[in-house]
Simulated scan of single mutants.
Amino acid sequence: MTGTVPELRRRSSCRRVVVGVSGSPGSTAALRTAVAEAGRTGAVVVAVLAWSPPPVTGRGHWGVPVLAALDAGLDAAAERLRGTIDGAFAVGLSRVRLSSFVVRGEAGEVLVRMVGGPEDLLVVGAGAEGLVWRGLRPSVASHCVRRSGCPVLVVPRPAPR
């Protein structure tokens, strides 16, 4: 499901566990942790994949080829979210209510905006290590810890097998 952040905000008084999903091993660990927490507390899991369109190239006008590329990118993001959820839970999600959304925007900002209030929990993966990588891509986890209006659980990356 896609939409804008205000449309997707909480519509009930039920506590939610909002989790960032990117398809990485760290986000898969975060998703599993979010589902475990929801199972323990009866909360609803809201899995969110933040999506940014590719930069416009070529002539730079918003013609049919550019719109087709945007649609294809959005479809690929939705498939990545479905694949991550399916891969993380091959056995199933029998006891947990889960909704999933692909939202356009930068991951940290999208996740912070998806939080409905202080009764929610935001779960994110710790992300990549190393100064070079963090210089290229700012830490989503750090952004969420600094800006979120609810508790944030940062899940460490799984150990290599």
Rank of each mutant, 00 (worst) to 15 (best):
T2M: 11
T2S: 14
P6M: 14
L8H: 12
S13P: 03
C14Y: 04
C14H: 12
R15E: 15
R15Y: 00
V18C: 01
G20Y: 13
S22I: 03
S24P: 05
G26P: 05
L31R: 14
A34I: 00
V35Q: 13
V35C: 15
A36K: 13
E37Y: 13
G39K: 10
G42A: 13
A43F: 02
V46D: 07
A47S: 06
V48P: 03
L49S: 06
P53S: 07
P53L: 01
G58W: 08
G58K: 10
R59H: 00
G60W: 02
G60T: 03
H61R: 12
H61G: 03
W62L: 15
P65K: 07
P65M: 02
L67V: 08
A69D: 09
A69S: 12
A69T: 09
L70A: 15
D71V: 06
G73Q: 03
E79T: 13
R80Y: 01
R82P: 00
D86I: 00
G87F: 02
G87Y: 07
A88F: 04
R95W: 05
V96L: 06
R97Q: 14
S100A: 15
F101T: 02
F101V: 01
V103C: 03
R104P: 02
A107G: 10
G117R: 10
E119H: 15
D120F: 06
L121E: 12
L121D: 15
V123Q: 13
G127Q: 11
G127M: 05
G127K: 08
G130D: 11
G130E: 13
L131N: 07
L131K: 05
W133R: 06
G135S: 13
R137I: 00
A141V: 04
S142E: 14
G149D: 04
P151V: 02
V152S: 04
V152K: 12
P156M: 10
P156G: 09
P160H: 09
R161T: 00
